[in-house]
Protein backbone atom coordinates (compact mmCIF):
# COMPACT_ATOMS: atom_id res chain seq x y z
CA UNK A 1 0.00 0.00 0.00
CA UNK A 2 1.19 3.55 -0.73
CA UNK A 3 2.54 5.69 2.09
CA UNK A 4 1.62 9.27 2.95
CA UNK A 5 2.58 11.63 5.73
CA UNK A 6 0.10 12.36 8.49
CA UNK A 7 -0.66 15.83 7.11
CA UNK A 8 -0.99 14.50 3.54
CA UNK A 9 -3.49 11.93 4.79
CA UNK A 10 -5.57 14.65 6.48
CA UNK A 11 -5.45 16.75 3.33
CA UNK A 12 -6.61 13.81 1.25
CA UNK A 13 -9.52 13.18 3.63
CA UNK A 14 -10.57 16.84 3.39
CA UNK A 15 -10.42 16.88 -0.40
CA UNK A 16 -12.36 13.63 -0.73
CA UNK A 17 -15.04 14.71 1.72
CA UNK A 18 -15.47 18.15 0.13
CA UNK A 19 -15.82 16.45 -3.24
CA UNK A 20 -18.48 14.12 -1.80
CA UNK A 21 -20.57 16.66 0.11
CA UNK A 22 -21.20 20.27 -0.88
CA UNK A 23 -22.21 21.28 2.63
CA UNK A 24 -18.63 20.94 3.88
CA UNK A 25 -16.53 24.08 4.14
CA UNK A 26 -13.23 25.02 5.75
CA UNK A 27 -12.78 28.08 7.95
CA UNK A 28 -9.75 29.33 9.84
CA UNK A 29 -6.74 31.61 9.99
CA UNK A 30 -4.20 31.47 7.12
CA UNK A 31 -5.98 28.48 5.59
CA UNK A 32 -5.72 29.88 2.03
CA UNK A 33 -2.64 32.04 1.85
CA UNK A 34 -0.39 29.62 3.67
CA UNK A 35 -2.45 26.43 3.44
CA UNK A 36 -2.63 26.39 7.23
CA UNK A 37 0.43 26.29 9.49
CA UNK A 38 0.93 22.60 8.73
CA UNK A 39 -0.26 22.68 5.10
CA UNK A 40 -3.31 20.54 5.79
CA UNK A 41 -5.63 22.89 3.87
CA UNK A 42 -3.19 23.33 0.99
CA UNK A 43 -4.85 23.14 -2.43
CA UNK A 44 -8.42 23.45 -1.17
CA UNK A 45 -8.74 27.07 -2.27
CA UNK A 46 -7.80 26.08 -5.84
CA UNK A 47 -10.25 23.19 -5.97
CA UNK A 48 -13.13 24.53 -3.84
CA UNK A 49 -12.71 28.32 -3.89
CA UNK A 50 -16.27 28.98 -2.73
CA UNK A 51 -15.95 26.74 0.33
CA UNK A 52 -12.88 27.95 2.16
CA UNK A 53 -12.88 31.04 4.36
CA UNK A 54 -9.71 32.72 5.53
CA UNK A 55 -10.48 34.80 8.58
CA UNK A 56 -9.05 37.60 10.64
CA UNK A 57 -7.63 36.51 14.00
CA UNK A 58 -10.95 35.97 15.74
CA UNK A 59 -11.24 32.49 17.25
CA UNK A 60 -14.56 33.14 19.02
CA UNK A 61 -15.99 34.57 15.81
CA UNK A 62 -14.70 31.66 13.72
CA UNK A 63 -16.08 29.07 16.13
CA UNK A 64 -19.40 30.89 16.51
CA UNK A 65 -19.80 31.13 12.75
CA UNK A 66 -19.12 27.40 12.59
CA UNK A 67 -21.81 26.67 15.18
CA UNK A 68 -24.42 28.80 13.39
CA UNK A 69 -23.63 27.43 9.95
CA UNK A 70 -23.80 23.88 11.34
CA UNK A 71 -27.18 24.54 12.96
CA UNK A 72 -28.34 25.87 9.58
CA UNK A 73 -27.39 22.64 7.83
CA UNK A 74 -23.75 23.02 6.81
CA UNK A 75 -20.72 20.92 7.83
CA UNK A 76 -17.91 23.26 8.87
CA UNK A 77 -14.34 22.09 9.40
CA UNK A 78 -12.85 24.69 11.71
CA UNK A 79 -9.08 25.01 11.99
CA UNK A 80 -7.64 26.49 15.17
CA UNK A 81 -4.03 27.31 14.35
CA UNK A 82 -2.66 26.03 17.67
CA UNK A 83 -4.96 24.28 20.07
CA UNK A 84 -3.92 26.64 22.87
CA UNK A 85 -5.94 29.32 21.03
CA UNK A 86 -9.16 27.34 21.43
CA UNK A 87 -9.31 28.87 24.91
CA UNK A 88 -10.29 32.10 23.10
CA UNK A 89 -13.40 30.28 21.83
CA UNK A 90 -14.36 28.18 24.83
CA UNK A 91 -17.88 29.59 25.11
CA UNK A 92 -18.57 28.66 21.51
CA UNK A 93 -17.29 25.10 22.01
CA UNK A 94 -18.56 24.37 25.50
CA UNK A 95 -21.74 26.41 25.88
CA UNK A 96 -22.86 26.51 22.26
CA UNK A 97 -21.65 23.57 20.13
CA UNK A 98 -21.73 20.98 22.91
CA UNK A 99 -25.01 21.87 24.60
CA UNK A 100 -27.17 22.90 21.65
CA UNK A 101 -28.65 19.49 20.87
CA UNK A 102 -29.53 18.84 24.51
CA UNK A 103 -30.89 22.30 25.33
CA UNK A 104 -33.19 22.23 22.32
CA UNK A 105 -34.56 18.79 23.16
CA UNK A 106 -32.83 17.19 20.18
CA UNK A 107 -33.83 19.77 17.56
CA UNK A 108 -30.34 21.15 16.94
CA UNK A 109 -27.51 19.28 15.29
CA UNK A 110 -24.01 20.77 15.23
CA UNK A 111 -22.03 18.65 12.74
CA UNK A 112 -18.75 20.51 13.13
CA UNK A 113 -15.14 19.31 13.21
CA UNK A 114 -12.65 21.39 15.16
CA UNK A 115 -9.09 20.58 14.08
CA UNK A 116 -6.55 21.19 16.82
CA UNK A 117 -2.78 21.02 16.18
CA UNK A 118 -1.44 20.21 19.65
CA UNK A 119 1.49 19.16 21.76
CA UNK A 120 5.17 19.86 21.55
CA UNK A 121 6.49 20.74 18.10
CA UNK A 122 9.20 23.20 17.19
CA UNK A 123 9.94 24.33 20.77
CA UNK A 124 7.19 26.94 20.86
CA UNK A 125 6.86 26.76 24.65
CA UNK A 126 3.85 27.01 26.90
CA UNK A 127 1.29 28.92 24.79
CA UNK A 128 1.69 26.87 21.59
CA UNK A 129 2.11 23.31 22.92
CA UNK A 130 -0.68 22.33 25.26
CA UNK A 131 -2.81 19.18 25.04
CA UNK A 132 -6.35 19.55 26.37
CA UNK A 133 -7.96 16.21 25.65
CA UNK A 134 -9.47 15.85 29.11
CA UNK A 135 -10.91 19.40 29.10
CA UNK A 136 -13.20 18.40 26.25
CA UNK A 137 -13.76 14.79 27.36
CA UNK A 138 -15.37 16.31 30.42
CA UNK A 139 -18.00 18.19 28.40
CA UNK A 140 -21.06 16.12 27.45
CA UNK A 141 -22.02 16.56 23.81
CA UNK A 142 -18.46 16.70 22.49
CA UNK A 143 -16.51 13.88 20.87
CA UNK A 144 -12.73 13.69 21.23
CA UNK A 145 -10.69 11.89 18.59
CA UNK A 146 -6.90 11.37 18.53
CA UNK A 147 -5.38 9.59 15.52
CA UNK A 148 -1.86 8.16 15.84
CA UNK A 149 -1.07 7.06 12.27
CA UNK A 150 -1.61 8.57 8.80
CA UNK A 151 -4.07 5.79 7.91
CA UNK A 152 -6.14 6.44 11.01
CA UNK A 153 -5.86 10.20 10.47
CA UNK A 154 -7.62 9.84 7.13
CA UNK A 155 -10.23 7.34 8.30
CA UNK A 156 -11.06 9.17 11.50
CA UNK A 157 -11.22 12.63 9.91
CA UNK A 158 -13.68 11.34 7.31
CA UNK A 159 -15.86 9.83 10.04
CA UNK A 160 -15.57 12.99 12.16
CA UNK A 161 -16.77 15.10 9.23
CA UNK A 162 -19.75 12.76 8.73
CA UNK A 163 -20.69 12.76 12.42
CA UNK A 164 -23.86 14.71 13.27
CA UNK A 165 -22.24 16.04 16.46
CA UNK A 166 -19.18 18.18 17.18
CA UNK A 167 -15.77 16.50 17.14
CA UNK A 168 -12.57 17.85 18.66
CA UNK A 169 -9.90 16.41 16.37
CA UNK A 170 -6.44 16.34 17.96
CA UNK A 171 -3.46 16.50 15.62
CA UNK A 172 -0.15 16.06 17.42
CA UNK A 173 2.25 18.40 15.69
CA UNK A 174 5.24 16.14 16.13
CA UNK A 175 3.72 13.39 13.97
CA UNK A 176 2.54 15.56 11.03
CA UNK A 177 5.59 14.42 9.05
CA UNK A 178 5.46 10.75 10.09
CA UNK A 179 4.75 8.36 7.23
CA UNK A 180 2.47 5.36 7.04
CA UNK A 181 0.18 3.31 4.86
CA UNK A 182 -3.02 5.09 3.84
CA UNK A 183 -5.79 3.35 1.87
CA UNK A 184 -6.70 5.02 -1.41
CA UNK A 185 -10.25 6.41 -1.74
CA UNK A 186 -13.07 5.62 0.67
CA UNK A 187 -11.69 4.70 4.10
CA UNK A 188 -13.55 5.42 7.31
CA UNK A 189 -12.99 4.34 10.90
CA UNK A 190 -15.99 4.52 13.24
CA UNK A 191 -15.60 6.94 16.14
CA UNK A 192 -15.47 5.21 19.51
CA UNK A 193 -13.42 2.19 18.46
CA UNK A 194 -10.02 1.44 19.94
CA UNK A 195 -7.53 -0.71 18.02
CA UNK A 196 -5.30 -3.50 19.28
CA UNK A 197 -2.01 -2.65 17.55
CA UNK A 198 -0.01 -5.51 19.01
CA UNK A 199 -1.25 -8.59 20.77
CA UNK A 200 0.34 -9.75 24.01
CA UNK A 201 -0.43 -11.83 27.08
CA UNK A 202 1.32 -10.25 30.05
CA UNK A 203 0.27 -6.59 30.18
CA UNK A 204 -1.92 -4.07 28.33
CA UNK A 205 -0.57 -0.67 27.39
CA UNK A 206 -3.37 1.72 26.42
CA UNK A 207 -1.81 4.59 24.49
CA UNK A 208 -2.97 7.94 23.11
CA UNK A 209 -1.64 9.70 20.00
CA UNK A 210 2.16 9.61 19.52
CA UNK A 211 2.47 7.41 22.61
CA UNK A 212 1.14 4.50 20.53
CA UNK A 213 4.31 4.34 18.46
CA UNK A 214 6.44 4.79 21.59
CA UNK A 215 4.53 1.97 23.28
CA UNK A 216 5.14 -0.34 20.32
CA UNK A 217 8.86 0.43 20.58
CA UNK A 218 8.74 -0.17 24.33
CA UNK A 219 6.98 -3.49 23.76
CA UNK A 220 9.90 -4.69 21.62
CA UNK A 221 12.40 -3.75 24.34
CA UNK A 222 10.27 -5.43 27.00
CA UNK A 223 10.52 -8.73 25.12
CA UNK A 224 14.09 -8.89 26.45
CA UNK A 225 12.71 -8.77 29.98
CA UNK A 226 10.37 -11.60 29.12
CA UNK A 227 7.23 -9.48 28.97
CA UNK A 228 4.73 -10.01 26.17
CA UNK A 229 2.93 -6.65 25.97
CA UNK A 230 -0.34 -5.85 24.23
CA UNK A 231 -0.70 -2.30 22.87
CA UNK A 232 -4.14 -0.70 22.45
CA UNK A 233 -4.54 2.60 20.59
CA UNK A 234 -7.47 4.41 22.26
CA UNK A 235 -8.06 6.48 19.06
CA UNK A 236 -11.29 7.91 20.41
CA UNK A 237 -11.33 9.35 23.95
CA UNK A 238 -15.00 10.31 23.91
CA UNK A 239 -16.85 8.15 23.27
CA UNK A 240 -14.31 5.77 24.82
CA UNK A 241 -14.16 2.13 23.73
CA UNK A 242 -14.36 0.70 27.23
CA UNK A 243 -15.20 -2.74 25.89
CA UNK A 244 -11.98 -3.28 23.92
CA UNK A 245 -9.84 -1.81 26.70
CA UNK A 246 -11.47 -3.85 29.49
CA UNK A 247 -11.42 -7.06 27.49
CA UNK A 248 -7.68 -6.66 26.96
CA UNK A 249 -6.89 -5.72 30.56
CA UNK A 250 -9.03 -8.53 31.95
CA UNK A 251 -7.09 -10.95 29.78
CA UNK A 252 -3.57 -9.71 30.65
CA UNK A 253 -4.22 -8.66 34.25
CA UNK A 254 -1.90 -5.63 34.08
CA UNK A 255 -2.54 -2.12 32.73
CA UNK A 256 -0.45 0.91 31.85
CA UNK A 257 -2.07 4.03 30.34
CA UNK A 258 0.16 6.37 28.32
CA UNK A 259 -0.62 9.91 27.26
CA UNK A 260 1.62 12.82 26.38
CA UNK A 261 -0.46 15.28 28.40
CA UNK A 262 -0.02 15.81 32.13
CA UNK A 263 -1.25 12.68 33.93
CA UNK A 264 -2.99 14.77 36.57
CA UNK A 265 -6.68 14.82 35.64
CA UNK A 266 -5.69 13.92 32.10
CA UNK A 267 -7.21 11.52 29.60
CA UNK A 268 -5.03 8.71 30.97
CA UNK A 269 -6.52 9.28 34.42
CA UNK A 270 -10.06 8.70 33.21
CA UNK A 271 -9.01 5.53 31.41
CA UNK A 272 -7.10 4.30 34.50
CA UNK A 273 -10.10 4.96 36.74
CA UNK A 274 -12.40 3.18 34.31
CA UNK A 275 -10.06 0.15 34.29
CA UNK A 276 -9.87 0.14 38.08
CA UNK A 277 -13.63 0.23 38.40
CA UNK A 278 -14.42 -2.41 35.77
CA UNK A 279 -11.45 -4.81 35.89
CA UNK A 280 -10.57 -4.83 39.60
CA UNK A 281 -11.15 -8.56 39.98
CA UNK A 282 -8.82 -9.37 37.09
CA UNK A 283 -6.03 -6.95 37.97
CA UNK A 284 -2.85 -8.47 39.38
CA UNK A 285 -1.13 -5.14 40.03
CA UNK A 286 -1.65 -1.39 40.10
CA UNK A 287 -2.82 0.55 37.07
CA UNK A 288 0.08 2.84 36.18
CA UNK A 289 -0.11 6.10 34.21
CA UNK A 290 2.58 7.57 31.98
CA UNK A 291 2.42 11.26 31.16
CA UNK A 292 4.19 14.55 31.50
CA UNK A 293 4.76 16.21 34.87
CA UNK A 294 2.13 18.79 35.80
CA UNK A 295 3.98 21.80 34.37
CA UNK A 296 3.47 24.22 31.47
CA UNK A 297 5.58 23.25 28.44
CA UNK A 298 9.00 24.86 28.86
CA UNK A 299 11.03 26.36 26.04
CA UNK A 300 14.58 24.99 26.35
CA UNK A 301 15.07 21.60 24.73
CA UNK A 302 17.06 20.59 27.82
CA UNK A 303 13.85 21.10 29.83
CA UNK A 304 11.45 19.73 27.25
CA UNK A 305 13.15 16.33 27.24
CA UNK A 306 12.24 15.98 30.90
CA UNK A 307 8.60 16.79 30.18
CA UNK A 308 7.54 14.78 27.13
CA UNK A 309 7.38 11.06 27.99
CA UNK A 310 9.53 8.72 25.93
CA UNK A 311 10.10 4.97 25.53
CA UNK A 312 12.03 4.44 28.82
CA UNK A 313 9.13 5.98 30.75
CA UNK A 314 6.86 3.31 29.29
CA UNK A 315 9.21 0.38 29.94
CA UNK A 316 9.66 1.60 33.53
CA UNK A 317 5.90 1.88 33.96
CA UNK A 318 5.30 -1.64 32.67
CA UNK A 319 7.93 -2.96 35.07
CA UNK A 320 6.21 -1.15 37.96
CA UNK A 321 2.83 -2.46 36.92
CA UNK A 322 4.16 -6.03 36.80
CA UNK A 323 5.71 -6.03 40.24
Amino acid sequence: MRELTFSEALREALHEEMERDETIFVIGEDVITHGGPYKVTDGIAERFPERIFETPIAEAGIMGVGVGAAMAGMNPVVEIMYMDFVTCAMDEVVNQAAKMRYMTGGQASVPMVIRLPCGVGRLLAAQHSQIMESWFMHVPGLQVVVPSTPGDAKGLLKSAIRSPDPVLFFEYKRIYTSRGEVPDGEHTIPLGQAKICREGEDATVVAIGPMVQKSLEAAVLLEDDGYDVEVVDARSLSPLDTETICESVSRTGHAVVCGEDSSFAGAASEIAAMIGENCFGDLKGPVVRVGSPHVPMPFSSELVKHVVPEVPDITDAVSRAMT
Partner: peptide, 10 residues
Protein backbone atom coordinates in the same frame (compact mmCIF):
# COMPACT_ATOMS: atom_id res chain seq x y z
CA UNK B 1 -23.99 37.11 17.16
CA UNK B 2 -21.38 34.88 15.52
CA UNK B 3 -23.80 31.93 15.09
CA UNK B 4 -26.31 34.25 13.38
CA UNK B 5 -23.46 35.28 11.10
CA UNK B 6 -22.80 31.56 10.50
CA UNK B 7 -26.42 30.90 9.59
CA UNK B 8 -26.16 33.77 7.12
CA UNK B 9 -23.01 32.19 5.71
CA UNK B 10 -25.00 28.97 5.24
Amino acid sequence: IAPATGAALA
